[in-house]
Design a protein around this nucleic acid. Structure first.
Lengths: 92, 92
DNA sequence: TTAAATACTTAGGATATCCTATATTTACAG
DNA sequence: CTGTAAATATAGGATATCCTAAGTATTTAA
């Protein structure tokens, strides 16, 4: 089962600011294993290039947060996600 | 947002037997537009090749249903899905 | 019997997704 | 200052995902 990594990153960032490692840990908690650095950071890079998130470097770490555009996009994407897959969770 | 087509097909078939068009319509209801034939049928073909579903042709239509292996796989996949994405749906 | 509609099939390809493997940067302990 | 750990970065590639754009078979209607 593949997909939705970028969406999940955006969704996590809609809850609170996080840096890369925190995001990896949160995803790992949910999926069972952490995305590899070579998976996560290119995804973050692309989300940034798309204007959906912005990064704030402080020393070693970069704290990411949603841009206004990102915030709007997550809302729409979440609506789509719930409509598309909502009933899968109702069964259990 | 891409992904999970095969999983969604399996999940729908865990509810009841369906033929291709019915599956397309059910997915269309959820996602907002029906997968194209060139998307859906290759996916069905691959699920069949993997031993997850079996098809029963009657004239023009093929009714698909889960194999025992498919039934077991859907259970596991659904558990994974709920663990990975469950909290996204709890918010709304 | 022909025409249209329905269900399915296939070829070929664009893009997304995620990986391995390696490198870089920064912080900090010794 | 040196070594190590933590956080991030990048190259390159395998595979998945989904599409467009055709096509074939089967049924139904005229």
């Amino acid at each position: 089962m593949r997909g939705l990594l970028s969406f999940q990153i955006l969704w996590l960032l809609s809850k609170r600011k996080m840096h890369g490692e925190e995001i990896a840990i949160e995803i790992g908690r949910r999926r069972g294993d952490k995305p590899k650095p070579g998976t996560l950071y290119p995804a973050l890079k692309e989300l940034k290039a798309s204007g959906l998130i912005s990064g704030n470097r402080k020393g070693k770490t970069i704290t990411y947060s949603l841009t206004p555009y990102g915030r709007k996009s997550v809302l729409g994407a979440t609506r789509y996600f719930c409509r598309a897959f909502g009933d899968i969770l109702e069964g259990r």
